[in-house]
Nucleic acid binder design. Structure first.
Length: 153
DNA sequence: GCCAACGTTGGC
DNA sequence: GCCAACGTTGGC
């Protein structure tokens, strides 16, 4: 099993929004970055655990725990001409963008802010903290995942 | 709103 | 295939 951190802007789609979805599940559509796509297409498997991270907001940080709940499949928004995620170069025979479904797994007792994460030496190697890392999906080690889980408990 | 970092695009 | 220009991300 692998561990991941997935960023979402809470104004657009927050951890609470995920909990309110039917089956507490959301297809992670709209990713248009190849590295992030490759993670979803090639590496993320059902049952992998996810730190659900709020970005571009007043207090960035990990809001809760989710999990991967589907195998990879094409992001349908790439075919929809009216979608903001429409990609004219993608075809159904040859889709360009893939995703997985994300499902709510559990709440944290307390939000683990980016500020808090930065205080802990054990987390200093996290890709999240490395310079210029703007990827919306990042791998996390088991140790980092468990450490953050503990901070939030 | 600023700006560093970096991905993408397109002309050559 | 290079690289300048441009766009986006995201913390501050």
């Amino acid at each position: 099993m692998k561990y991941w951190l997935m960023k979402s802007e809470p104004d657009v789609f927050s951890f609470d929004d995920l909990k309110k979805r039917p089956k507490k599940t959301e297809p992670w559509n709209g990713v248009r970055n190849y590295q992030a796509r490759n993670f979803m297409r090639d590496e993320m498997k059902i049952g992998d655990q996810i730190l659900f991270y709020h970005s571009s907001c007043d207090i960035p940080g990990v809001a809760g725990i989710a999990k991967v709940s589907s195998q990879t499949y094409p992001d349908i928004t790439q075919f929809e001409a009216t979608s903001e995620y429409f990609d004219p170069k993608a075809t159904k025979e040859n889709p360009r963008w893939f995703l997985i479904d994300v499902t709510f797994m559990k709440d944290l007792k307390s939000f683990v802010s980016l500020e808090e994460i930065k205080k802990h030496k054990n987390l200093s190697e996290m890709r999240l903290l490395q310079r210029g890392n703007r990827l919306s999906i990042l791998p996390v080690t088991r140790e980092e995942f468990e450490y953050i889980l503990k901070l939030g408990t």
